[in-house]
Simulated scan of single mutants.
Amino acid sequence: MAAAISLEAGGSLAHDLGSAAVTAGVALALLKFFEELAKRGVFQQKLSRKLVHISVGLVFLLFWPLFSSGTYAPFFAALAPGVNIIRMLLLGLGLMKNEAMVKSMSRSGDYRELLKGPLYYAVTVTFATSILWRTSPIAIALICNLCAGDGKEKLPYNPNKSYAGSIAMAVAGFLASVGYMHYFHIFGFIEETWYMALGFLMVSIAATLVESHPISTELDDNLTVPLTTFLVGSLIF
């Protein structure tokens, strides 16, 4: 019996290690793709940053079902964003150079920006993966609202934000959350309910309101949005 359990545990670890390698490979390939586009000047820097911001977290979520139900599975899954935390620190502190990556992830091209938004982004995804994992609606809401977008018409209380952007963020965050609720329900990780869908709507609205506030411009919306999502999500779910 002990030998069988040991073999099963070893199989799960090997499976999760392989899944982590696949997930990290896809994440790295996606980042390299955007780096290359930035290097070639295919997109403007602002658009390039937005594409990275929107796509990386949502694509990463797609790979969560690859992992086993083992105890260490979420930690293996968190390796890719965890490594990205280290990379953001090294780049942001100037200890490592990668001009194309800095260009694809920063607003102004200043490498020190990576110590704010991009670092908060990586920390949020790592936290959602390693601590909350795929049975938590808060994990879904965290990543989906973090990856939501921006727009153009100015808000009266914050000229740096917009009506179109705020509406787009709330709708995109909500629809992405509901989409991943259904996706994880297919694999049996989460229960698909109208209450949960309504909860996602409330969380997305709360995250959008905070994101549109001037404090999010002063701090960073990659910090304020996850904090709001986590706090409101903890009250609802």
Rank of each mutant, 00 (worst) to 15 (best):
L30E: 10
G165D: 01
S19V: 01
L115Y: 02
I215G: 00
E191P: 02
E35K: 12
V59D: 03
F33I: 05
A176I: 01
F127N: 07
A197P: 10
A170W: 06
L51W: 09
I138D: 06
L201S: 13
A14F: 11
L37F: 14
P214A: 01
P118V: 10
S162C: 08
I236R: 07
L132H: 10
L95T: 09
H185R: 09
V22R: 01
N98I: 00
A21M: 10
V59P: 09
M169R: 15
W133S: 04
G151W: 02
V210S: 02
A21D: 02
P118F: 08
E99C: 05
A38K: 04
V22C: 03
T126A: 11
V83G: 14
N145P: 10
S212I: 00
F76A: 04
I190L: 14
I143P: 08
L146F: 09
F189N: 13
S69K: 14
L146I: 10
R49H: 08
T208S: 10
L142R: 01
E8D: 12
I186K: 11
T135A: 12
Y111K: 14
L198E: 14
A197S: 13
L198C: 12
L235P: 05
H15W: 13
V52H: 12
L132E: 09
A27I: 14
A24Y: 10
A9S: 10
I236S: 07
K154M: 06
Y157D: 00
K97S: 12
A4H: 15
P65N: 05
V52R: 08
S106T: 15
S6P: 00
F189P: 03
F34Y: 13
T217N: 02
R107E: 14
G117L: 05
